[in-house]
Amino acid sequence: MGKADADGPGLPDLPPEWGRVVVPDDASALAEEAEQIRRELHRRVTAPPRRAARRPGRPASRRWPPAVPVLVLLVTVVAAVAGLATVTWPRATRSPGPAASPPERPPTPLTDRLLPALDLVDAGQAPVPLRGLLPAAVLLVDGCPCPERVTEAAAAAPPGVNVVTVASTSPRAAPSDSRVRALADPAGGLRAFLHLPAQPEAMTVLLADRSGRIVLVLPEVDSIADYQVELAGLAG
């Protein structure tokens, strides 16, 4: 039916002598008590004032009869109305914001993965297996010819390590007097494997040892110092 004042919302601390006050769930259940309160108040307003008997030598004083039951009932009615208003008060619904787009995932690290079994092409469009050039320093020059970077790599590569340039549609001319193999990747398979688009004025370097394991991938290279140590280790 209802619940005690200890569970009701916003009830004040009531004197313990009032006993347990139960707040009904439906305010209409208090209609009879409310009518009783109205009759009591009407009676007090319309009834003539009563004078209390006074003792000799003491001034007259007005004494009111105890109204504790009426006050308890009044507090109960107010608490019931407040509880119903709290439950039924419309709450503003918060409109959901725009769905946040998931963050872009970084490319999967390629170190220690095997070099893909791709076929590149030479100047005569003959296929050249990439794994047949191991160990190799693969220089992707589709974004920048970077002849000075290619020359540095050829000079720093130890004996037995192939330096390979890879362009997009057709091989770029290798620097003269250099041990550089110029190839092309018309299908773009190597770039797709690396998940690294070509950048203007930038060369990408991929190092793979003789077993085909990728040792290092650098999206952009500023000088041979960026990978000289790893390049020298490919001869081991």
Rank of each mutant, 00 (worst) to 15 (best):
Lys3Thr: 12
Ala6Val: 13
Asp7Tyr: 14
Asp7Ser: 10
Pro9Val: 13
Trp18Cys: 04
Arg20Met: 11
Val23Asp: 01
Asp25Cys: 04
Asp26Lys: 01
Leu30Cys: 00
Gln36Ser: 02
Arg39Ala: 00
Leu41Lys: 03
Arg44Gly: 03
Arg44Trp: 06
Arg44Thr: 08
Thr46Tyr: 04
Ala47Glu: 10
Pro48Glu: 13
Ala53Thr: 12
Arg54Tyr: 05
Arg54Phe: 05
Pro59Lys: 13
Ala60Pro: 03
Ser61Asn: 07
Arg62Met: 09
Arg62Leu: 13
Arg63His: 15
Trp64His: 13
Pro66Glu: 12
Pro66Ala: 14
Val68Ile: 13
Leu74Glu: 06
Leu74Arg: 08
Leu74Ser: 12
Val75Lys: 07
Val75Ile: 12
Thr76Leu: 07
Val77Thr: 10
Val78Phe: 12
Ala79Val: 12
Gly83Thr: 11
Thr86Met: 06
Thr86Val: 14
Thr86Asn: 04
Val87Lys: 06
Trp89Leu: 11
Trp89Asn: 05
Pro90Glu: 04
Arg91Val: 15
Arg91Thr: 15
Arg91Ala: 14
Thr93Trp: 14
Thr93Val: 15
Arg94Pro: 07
Pro96Met: 12
Gly97Ile: 08
Ala99Phe: 06
Ala99Thr: 14
Ala99His: 05
Ala100Cys: 09
Pro103Val: 14
Glu104Leu: 15
Pro107Val: 07
Thr108Ile: 14
Pro109Phe: 10
Thr111Lys: 13
Asp112Thr: 09
Arg113Gln: 09
Leu114Tyr: 09
Leu114Ala: 11
Leu115Gln: 01
Leu115Ala: 02
Pro116Cys: 11
Pro116Val: 14
Ala117Gln: 06
Ala117Ser: 07
Asp122Gln: 01
Ala126Phe: 11
Pro127Ala: 15
Pro127Ile: 13
Pro127Thr: 15
Val128Leu: 01
Leu130Met: 06
Gly132Phe: 11
Gly132Ser: 15
Leu133Thr: 12
Leu133Arg: 10
Leu133His: 06
Val138Glu: 02
Leu140Arg: 13
Asp142Cys: 04
Asp142Pro: 03
Gly143Asn: 04
Gly143Lys: 04
Gly143Tyr: 07
Cys144Gly: 05
Cys144Asp: 15
Pro145Arg: 10
Thr151Met: 03
Glu152Gln: 10
Ala154Asn: 00
Ala154Asp: 01
Pro158Cys: 06
Pro159Asn: 08
Gly160Asn: 01
Gly160Ile: 08
Val161Glu: 03
Val163Tyr: 04
Val163Asn: 01
Thr165Lys: 02
Thr165Asp: 01
Val166Tyr: 06
Ala167Met: 02
Ala167Ser: 06
Arg172Val: 10
Ala174Asn: 01
Ala174Ser: 03
Arg181Asp: 03
Pro186Arg: 08
Ala187Gly: 09
Ala187Asn: 08
Gly188Glu: 03
Ala192Gln: 03
His195Arg: 14
His195Glu: 15
Leu196Ala: 08
Leu196Cys: 05
Ala198Cys: 03
Gln199His: 09
Glu201Tyr: 13
Met203Lys: 02
Thr204Glu: 01
Leu207Pro: 00
Arg210Gln: 08
Ser211Cys: 02
Val215Gln: 05
Val215Thr: 11
Leu216Glu: 10
Val217Ala: 03
Ser223Phe: 04
Asp226Cys: 05
Leu231His: 02
Leu231Glu: 03
Gly233Phe: 13
Leu234Phe: 02
Leu234His: 00
